[in-house]
Structures are given as structure tokens and as C-alpha cells.
Design a protein around this nucleic acid. Structure first.
Lengths: 353, 353
DNA sequence: TTGTAGGCGTTATCAC
DNA sequence: GTGATAACGCCTACAA
């Protein structure tokens, strides 16, 4: 309750000595198109608006128009640089179409995730982009999804697997590239390959876990469960996981790390252990975050085109908003292995199978 | 224009066989407090709402109530991890008071900065937190600030220097800590100290540039302008700047890097040059981003309490919203040097002054 | 070329 | 206990 209330269209109309409608026309720039307004009046209105510091109320406009020209984007973890790129892609695409982007992160405060999500769905946005982990089969996620369907809020999912539902999806998984990564390690002589599987909830990143197992099996290498370390999604988790992995009786000669953030922790742990990468041990991770190529050593990592992911999702969402009845669409984007420095020849064959 | 329009309070009222007002009471939980509603009616309304998938329209509510229960936060560069911590602090504090946070970044698309900012000011939010670079004396920033004053939109600035204006401010600068950092380097025997000054616009980070010069002068060391490299704010900029700095005829034995993101680039450049940190060259940077202590070597860096910064700003903002007439407040938060591994003794005195 | 009036979905005030 | 009714600020036929 500011002392002086903010000016409304009516105030401007009053000051300019015209009707409220005229102000609306002028503000919305309908001046010389459908509605003819004399230049003199137009200027007078503009001047009055300027003088009063009038600025249209987006809420009232949204209420009247039935749309907010804003898109919501829910990111699993804003602290993972990987996601910014998707945000950036979405941002660009949204802006190009005159939409704003409302950014929310689940992980910032996991317990609030649902709440944030519901708020966004209260028509604060015209559509929603959901990334990854939120939409997994969690306890409440399903319920919310059903709610949303009822509300006819356009939704696009960015996911790592096809889901048999009626939402548009942009799908990009690490499956094929994981086989590539494993092939690379095999070809470098590695046989004992660890996996640091650091995820926020179980059953995430299955596009990395499964191919890891399969690749080993195809090579006739038995999966050693002690080589798979499950942990949380932070750098510290990656650090601790690596420490514990290397303390094993028969440690791996290479580690697959579920993402680059964890790999940063892993690199630090290896250094603390006096191990040199890739001479003593190899590392392959995922996401190709911007700093991956500045680390020492530069990370060999699997890359999605994260920016494009955001762009595609936004395009899909915009199309759906425009035509809610169009058939649901699934867009698949590739990933690829980026070979840099962190993976090298296995140090010796003593440990190999 | 979805095929089926989303249900409104009126629909619920109709289905439940009550009036619209009653629905509002039930939804807002005023049931057994001020307004008595029979339990039977309450349940019937709730059931009808559930059945229809009714969800209140935030815009209409905002229009009626005159507030959105949302706070805007404009961050200079969402890709700098330093800022997430402030975001997190703000988030926590906002949520605790039942507010949402709308996050925007300037740098994502610098040219849209003003636009984003204006959208937020259209009463999509009840208040705004502005961080650093946006509010600097740029061409348009002043104009916008004046606009805002007129609109009575509560604003809090997070800045590195006191500004003689009527906005609440949370101020935290690196000035004192820079003297500390320079003292550390001096005590380690460094005399030729470079500065990588990578900022998005000129006249930013003066709280680091000025004390750098002053500390040198106090020690009777002439400032060598060739040791100050100005560059942009990205990792690549830090990389290139370091390369060019070390190619000087008489390169420094220590480098002060304007922030940790640039320091990551610097570390990489030094490695490419075959230099070992801190044996051959020392590095001190700023911000203490989460990965600073996982890098190899761990970064000696100057730290603000970034989370607290966000919390304080939000508290200030919330207080201002509650009481727009209260006197404007300036909160000062300290910074401090965090000594880790990247700074060590000067390699030799040959280069010293 | 400009003005009038109705309604978007909500909440609050007041009768019943 | 519950139901009309009047705003909130805006947009847009339609009338003048």
C-alpha cells in the first residue's frame, strides 16, 4: 500500500482529457492501424502517461486477454551448469516470440518443488517446460500431471526417455554415446571400469547405468557391483564417492562419472590420492559443461546439445499454445562423445580381467 | 484457446449449488475463522473443485488484492556460480514468507535486460532485487531507476558500494579483503603482481581495482599498467588474458583474478604454459564459488557471504513492502580472504622490484 | 475520430 | 451460515 497509488489508464485519460479507451489504443499502438487517432491526441496521451509514470498492469491485461505471454521453466538443479545452457536456449527462443521466461529450480529447495510448480500452473504462465527429474514417477508427480491435464496448461517435457503420454517431448539420452564411451575405454585397455552414479533420486540417469552394464556384458566382463558407487548429486558427493571407490582392494583403472559436476569432485579426490589423470586413471563423464574444457585435465565427456534442447522445447511449447489440438510431438536429439584429455591408456594390465 | 475452458469459481459454485462467494471462502480457508461455513457445504465445495480440476487464477487474485506475492530478482550473469548462492539465499527467505521468486538474468541476453526489467516492473512482482552491474551508471539505467521511483515499486539493491539514493541497499565489497590478499602476496615475497580485470562493463569491480593499485603504492611499488589486463567476463576471456599476461617480457609471479570463473580459465592457461601453481606462479581470485575448493589447486580466494547477501536483501525488501514509508536502510556485510593452495611463495627474487 | 459499456476471475462488504 | 454485488485495471465491440 504505497502512499500514492500507481496511476491507472483512467488517470492518464483524465489528465489527457480523453476517454479510457483512447488511452488503451494509444498505449497498445493501435493508433494508425485499425483505430485512427489524431496525432495530436496521441502525443497528448503519451505525454500524460509519461508525466504520471503510467505503466500498464500486466495482471489486468493477462486477466482480460487470457494469456500472460510468459513461459515457465522448471530446472532440476540450477547449480548444475549443464542446465543453464538449456535455459539459455529456451530464453532465446521465447524472447524471439515475445514471451518471457519464468525460471524456477526444484533443487534449490526440493521440498518446495511442488509448490512452485503449482503456483506456475495457476495461470501465471501460458505454458510450462519441465526438465528431467521432476516428471519422473515420483509419489506426487503423477497426481500433478493429471491435475495439469485437466487445466489444459500446455506442457513440454525435456526427458531422457520416451514416455507414453500425451505431452510433447524433447528427448535426448546418453545411451548410444555411453556405448561409445565404453568402447573408447575398452580400446584403451581398460577392463575394470567404475561408475559413480550420483543422482538426486533413484531411477534417474538410467540412460547411463543400463548401457554401462550392457557394454560390460557384451564384452564378457562381469559387472562388479562394488565398482558402482551410488551417491548424491553434489561435487562433494563425487569427491567422497571417488575416495571410497579407489579404496577398494582392486580399484578401477577408469571411472565413468554420471556428470561433469561430480567429475570435478572426482578429479579433486584423485589428486588427493596422488593419482594423475589420465596416466594413472581415466575419467569419462557427461554433459560437457562449459568448464569441462578448462579443467586440468580437460574432460573427456559425453555431450548433449543442451542449448538446442531448450530451443526445441520452447518451439514445441509455443506451437502447442497456438494450437492446443495439434497431435502431440516427440523430438529426438542426439548426443555424442567429446574426446579430450581425461581418458588415456590403462596404466597396466595387472588389474584387468 | 483450449477446447475446454478452465473452470472458474462460478463453475464450482454452480456444481456445488452454492454462491461464488462461498466458494471463495472455502478455497481461502476462511471457513471456521471469520466466516462460518457448515462442514457439509465446505466438503461439497471442495469436492466440486476437485472434480472440475478448479485452480484459482493467480492473475485475477493479484488484480483484486493488488499484490502478486512474487519477488523479482535480476542477476547480472546466471552463468557465474557465485550468483546462485545469492539466489538461494533470496529464495529461502522469500519462501519462508510465502513469496515466490521470479528469476531473471541480464547476461543471458544483455540486449533484453531492460525489457525483462520493465516487464517485471509491470506489477508482475511486488518488489525487485537488483544485483550489481545493472544499477551502475549506464545510459539507460538511470532513466529506469527514475521510472521505478515513480511507480513506487519497492526495490533493494545488492551492490559493492554505497549509493546516495533512496533505495534500500545491501552492500558488500571486496575492498578490505583485497588489501588482505595483497598483504598475503607481499608476505610471500611477490612484488610483480598482475591483475586480470575481466568485467562485463567498464567501472565494475572497482572495489578490486582500486585497492590493488593502492596496496601496491603503499608498498612503494609502481603500478605497471602492462600487468593489468582488461578483458570480458567469461572463462575463455580469463584464459586468453592469462596467456597474454604471461607472454610479457617480465611476467608477474602472482596474479589477482577478478573472479573465480576467470580463475578457472587462468588455471588452464597456466597449465598450457607448463607452469605449476603455486610453485611457479600464484593465483588469488574472488567469490569463493562452490567449486573453488575442488579445483586443483584449491583456490585461494576472497569470499562474500553470498547466501546471506540474498537473505538480507529479501528481508529488506519484504520489510519495505510491508511499510513503504520506512526510512531507507543500508546493510553492510563483510568479506574475507580464504587461504587455500593457489597462492604460495614467490619462486625467485630475480623479478622482484 | 472518440466515448460507452461489459466482462475477465477474484475477494470483500454487506444484507438476508 | 450464505448470497448478491461492487470493485480491481484492462481491452474491445459498438455506438456516436
Amino acid at each position: 500500500m504505497p502512499k500514492t497509488k500507481r496511476p491507472t489508464q483512467a488517470d492518464v485519460a483524465c489528465l489527457a482529457g480523453v476517454s479510457r479507451a483512447t488511452v488503451s489504443y494509444v498505449i497498445n499502438g493501435l493508433a494508425n492501424t485499425r483505430i485512427p487517432i489524431s496525432e495530436e491526441t496521441r502525443l497528448r496521451v503519451l505525454e500524460a502517461a509519461r508525466q504520471l509514470g503510467y505503466v500498464p498492469d500486466a495482471n489486468a491485461r493477462a486477466l482480460r486477454l487470457g494469456n500472460t505471454k510468459a513461459l515457465g521453466l522448471i530446472v532440476p538443479d540450477i547449480r548444475n551448469p549443464h542446465f543453464w545452457e538449456t535455459v539459455e536456449g529456451a530464453w532465446r527462443e521465447a524472447r524471439a516470440s515475445g514471451y518471457h521466461l519464468l525460471l524456477s529450480s526444484m533443487d534449490l529447495n526440493a521440498e518446495y518443488g511442488k509448490e512452485v510448480f503449482e503456483d506456475l500452473s495457476h495461470r501465471r504462465v501460458d505454458g510450462l517446460i519441465l526438465m528431467g527429474s521432476f516428471i519422473e514417477q515420483s509419489d506426487e508427480a503423477k497426481e500433478i500431471t493429471i491435475q495439469l491435464r485437466k487445466q489444459h496448461l500446455p506442457i513440454v517435457e525435456i526427458s531422457d526417455h520416451f514416455r507414453e503420454n500425451h505431452a510433447d517431448q524433447v528427448i535426448s539420452d546418453y545411451r548410444e554415446a555411453t556405448f561409445e564411451a565404453m568402447e573408447l575405454l575398452f580400446s584403451l585397455g581398460h577392463r575394470r571400469i567404475g561408475l559413480i552414479y550420483g543422482v538426486a533420486r533413484p531411477d534417474l540417469a538410467l540412460d547411463r547405468l543400463h548401457p554401462y552394464r550392457e557394454a560390460l556384458e557384451v564384452r564378457g566382463i562381469e559387472v562388479d557391483e562394488s565398482l558402482i558407487v551410488r551417491c548424491g548429486p553434489t561435487m562433494e558427493d563425487g569427491y567422497q564417492a571417488t575416495l571410497s571407490l579407489m579404496k577398494e582392494k582392486d580399484p578401477p583403472t577408469a571411472i565413468l562419472v554420471i556428470n561433469d559436476v561430480l567429475a570435478i569432485g572426482a578429479l579433486r579426490a584423485l589428486a588427493d590420492l596422488g593419482l594423475v589423470v589420465p596416466q594413472n586413471i581415466s575419467l569419462v563423464s557427461y554433459d560437457d559443461i562449459p568448464q569441462a574444457k578448462y579443467l586440468v585435465p580437460r574432460l573427456t565427456t559425453v555431450s548433449k546439445n543442451a542449448v538446442l534442447l531448450g530451443q526445441e522445447a520452447t518451439r514445441l511449447l509455443l506451437r502447442r499454445i497456438q494450437d492446443p489440438e495439434r497431435p502431440c510431438e516427440k523430438v529426438v536429439l542426439p548426443s555424442r562423445l567429446v574426446v579430450r584429455e581425461s581418458a588415456g591408456p590403462a596404466p597396466s594390465r595387472q588389474n584387468s580381467f
